[in-house]
Amino acid sequence: MKYVIINGSPRRKNTWKMVEQAKKNLNGEFEEIHLMKEKIPLCNGCFKCIVEGEERCPHRDIIQPIVDKMKDADGIIIACPVYAMNVTALLKNFLDHTAYFYHRPEFFTKKALVVVSTAGAGQKDVAKYIDETLRHWGVNKVYKITYACGGKDSLDVKNINEVSQKFARDVESGKLHNPKFGDIVFFNVWKAMAFSKDPIKADREFWFNNDLASHDFAPEVKLNIAKRLFSKVMFFILKRVMK
């Protein structure tokens, strides 16, 4: 198995210790990306990645190699401490650069592990935000490890082991889970936008060139009957709304 680790912390203390503990339960190769070292310029909000295509991002030379490593991996690990009750600026800047995945999701066959630590509070909200972002990217299943260390160099080893072992088994199984109803809604929102009267060109090309426009969800992920029907109904409604 191949895992890529996106480290959103500017240092290697509690959050990174949690990652190192989790790695002990994962069998495979690891690619570590420490965002502090990548020196990614601030996203300038030009919208080129969304409107014209991600290849038009002015920082593509830095962002694309990271994205390629995520696409090549079997499992994605995102690690981040809580800074001011949110993700670090390092991670937020990277996620801002990948905003086009909200319109054009690509990670339907991937599993992810989110690792968040805090000295005080906010760890569950930060993990939830990263989880929601990954699900908008299309990620099939997200596991979360959170820990409030109280400012001390300590670990909840039992919880880290339990969650990371579940993550490892899931990645190795190759099984793809049925998406949540909310994920199906967003899939159809962006799909319907590709059918709208005046669609974003990059979106329309993505949905049709990748044969997503003709499916109720990503073709690799098999929906049960209820969710397949739900997807069809949602698309019918959204397509009419966006005409």
Results as ranks from 00 to 15, higher is better:
Ile62Glu: 02
Gln64Met: 10
Gln64Ile: 09
His34Asp: 15
Val51Trp: 10
Lys24Cys: 09
Lys24Ile: 07
Ala73Ser: 09
Cys49Arg: 08
Asn44Asp: 13
Pro41Ala: 04
Leu42His: 12
Ile76Arg: 00
Asp74Ser: 06
Asp74Asn: 09
Phe30Arg: 02
Gly28Thr: 03
Met36Ile: 13
Ile63Ala: 00
Ile76His: 02
Val67Leu: 10
Ile62Pro: 03
Lys24Met: 08
Glu31Val: 14
Glu52Ser: 13
Arg56Gly: 07
Leu35Arg: 01
Lys39Tyr: 11
Asp74Ala: 05
Glu54Ile: 04
Met70Thr: 00
Gln64Asn: 14
Cys49Pro: 12
Glu52Thr: 08
Ile50Gly: 10
Asp74Val: 02
Gly53Asn: 06
Arg60Ala: 12
Leu26Met: 14
Asp68Ser: 05
Glu31Arg: 12
Asn27Thr: 15
Asp72Ser: 15
Glu54His: 07
Ile62Met: 06
Glu32Asp: 13
Asp68Cys: 04
Lys69Trp: 01
Met36Lys: 15
Leu35Glu: 00
Cys46Ile: 12
Asn25Asp: 02
Met70Gly: 02
Ile50Thr: 15
Ile62Asn: 03
Met36Asn: 14
Met36Trp: 08
Gly53Arg: 03
Glu55Phe: 10
Lys69Gly: 03
Glu29Val: 09
Gln64Tyr: 12
Pro41Arg: 02
Pro58Ile: 09
Phe47Lys: 13
Asp68Gly: 03
Glu31Met: 09
Ile40Phe: 02
Pro58Thr: 10
Glu55Ile: 08
Ile77Asn: 05
Asp74Gln: 07
Pro65Tyr: 01
Leu26Arg: 03
Gly75Ser: 09
Glu52Gln: 15
Pro65Val: 01
Asn25Tyr: 01
Asp68Met: 04
Val67Tyr: 06
Asn25Gly: 02
Glu52Phe: 08
Glu54Thr: 06
Gly53Phe: 03
Phe30Val: 06
Pro58Trp: 08
Gly28Asn: 05
Gly45Gln: 09
Arg60Val: 15
Asn44Lys: 12
Ile33Glu: 04
Pro65Cys: 00
Pro65Thr: 00
Val67Cys: 06
Ile66Cys: 03
Phe47Leu: 13
Ile63Asn: 01
Lys69Asp: 03
Gly75Asp: 05
Pro58Ala: 08
Ile33Tyr: 05
Phe47Met: 14
Ile40His: 00
Leu35Ile: 06
Gln64Trp: 09
Val51Pro: 11
Gly53Trp: 00
Gly45Tyr: 07
His34Phe: 13
Met36Tyr: 15
Lys48Thr: 14
Lys24Phe: 06
Val51Gln: 11
Ala73Cys: 07
Met36Gln: 15
Leu35Cys: 05
Cys57Gln: 03
Ile77Gln: 06
Ile76Trp: 00
Glu31Leu: 08
Cys46Val: 10
Met36Glu: 15
Glu38Ile: 08
Glu32Ser: 08
Glu52Asn: 14
Ile63Gly: 00
Gln64Gly: 07
Gly45Cys: 11
Leu26Ala: 05
Gly28Ile: 03
Glu32Ala: 07
His59Phe: 15
Phe30Pro: 01
Phe47Tyr: 14
Gly28Gln: 01
Asn44Gln: 13
Ile66Ala: 02
Gly75Val: 06
Arg60Cys: 10
Glu29Cys: 07
Pro65Gln: 01
Ile33Trp: 05
Ile62Leu: 10
Asp74Gly: 06
Met36Pro: 11
Cys46Phe: 11
Asp74Leu: 03
Asp61Arg: 09
